[in-house]
């Protein structure tokens, strides 16, 4: 299966990655090679195989009780931020201003 330049660009945009114009063909070729390889899965009969999940389904849920021990507060929350002020994170302007 080969992946087109356009698909590489679309996927890169979804992943917020930028691929240099002169690298797109190489990335497309690498991804195509990997996709050819994973196509071996197509030969398997998986009709009776449910998707795997490990986590214990009987795990108790968390009691609705505050956990002060992990609370960071404004100073520690923003301590590692590239830009912060008065407990807020600062970022370049958000143009598309509604969460989809």
């Amino acid at each position: 299966m080969s992946i087109s330049r356009e698909e590489v660009q679309r996927v890169a945009e979804l992943a917020r990655l930028e691929i240099a114009a002169d690298a797109v063909d190489r990335v497309a070729a690498q991804l195509s090679g990997i996709l050819d390889f994973v196509a071996t899965l197509d030969a398997l009969d998986l009709g009776d195989c449910e998707p795997t999940a490990f986590a214990p389904a009987a795990a108790p849920l968390r009691a609705d009780v505050p956990d002060e021990s992990r609370r960071l507060g404004p100073e520690r929350a923003t301590a590692a931020a590239p830009a912060a002020e008065e407990g807020y994170f600062l970022v370049p302007p958000i143009v598309e201003n509604v969460n989809p």
Binding site: V38, L41, D42, L44, L46, C49, E50, P51, T52
Partner: peptide, 8 residues
């Protein structure tokens, strides 16, 4: 499909 292959 990969998650199903895991079960296998």
């Amino acid at each position: 499909k990969a998650q199903r292959a895991r079960t296998r």
